[in-house]
């Protein structure tokens, strides 16, 4: 058995064999490294959550969360983001089946949902700023804006990432690098979902309770 494999390997160009083996190992490493990066992002967000927890009552005479937050808007945002996570998963599923078209279609849907989410979030920010409740108003609003917009900034990076991947897959098909990057992207996108669930519960739901 061993002898057979050796001769088989020798027949192919050593370059191809090497690329295949080492790059498989490399993907494993890249996945792990990306996971570690996501953990650092978790620490970053937990820092921002802690800051929000400390400052959420420091309204300095300004409005509280319960008067500012529009839960309908937030529910729509949540549904958009959760659905985008679902379509992102479908895109990965199509990747397993090597269906380039479906991968692209689901990626496009994910992009549109993510973009809609971001537009809604920005319109909420715009509304707050226009009604005189910008981040300059109080410590509470500063921490609210920074926590939510850091998540939004991640979404924006995800959107740019999706555009880049879309063009690449369109041009070069499902190459090994594209497959790997799409897998990492889906980790990133689901991670943002998890962060949003925390923002949804801790910032909006808890804030609306007016405790």
């Amino acid at each position: 058995m061993t002898v057979l494999t050796t001769t088989f390997n020798e027949q192919r160009s050593s370059l191809a064999v090497l690329r295949f083996d080492e790059s498989n190992h490399f993907y494993d490493i890249a996945n792990f490294g990306f996971f570690v990066y996501l953990m650092t992002d978790f620490v970053l967000f937990s820092g921002l959550f802690a800051v929000y927890a400390v400052l959420h009552n420091n309204t300095a005479g300004g409005p509280t969360g319960s008067t500012l937050f529009n839960l309908h808007n937030v529910l729509t945002e949540t549904l958009l983001l959760l659905t985008s996570s679902f379509t992102c998963g479908l895109s990965i599923l199509s990747l397993r089946h090597r269906n380039k078209h479906k991968v692209l279609i689901y990626l496009a849907i994910t992009f549109i949902l993510g973009a809609l989410f971001l537009i809604l979030e920005l319109s909420e920010f715009k509304h707050l700023i226009n009604t005189g409740n910008s981040w300059r108003r109080s410590g509470f609003l500063s921490s609210f804006f920074v926590l939510v917009s850091t998540h939004g900034l991640h979404i924006l990076i995800g959107l740019i990432w999706m555009i880049v991947m879309f063009i690449r897959i369109l041009k070069r098909g499902l190459s090994r690098a594209s497959v790997r990057r799409l897998t990492l992207f889906s980790l990133f996108w689901h991670f943002l979902d998890i962060i949003w669930i925390f923002i949804f519960s801790i910032v909006y739901l808890y804030g609306a309770l007016n405790l």
Binding site: W135, R136, S142
Partner: peptide, 21 residues
């Protein structure tokens, strides 16, 4: 980042007033 935002965008994370800590 928070200190930068305080200084540049006028936020109130660590300021003496406006609910900073």
């Amino acid at each position: 980042s928070l200190l930068f935002l305080d200084r540049t965008l006028g936020m109130h994370f660590f300021t003496a007033g406006h609910g900073g800590n």
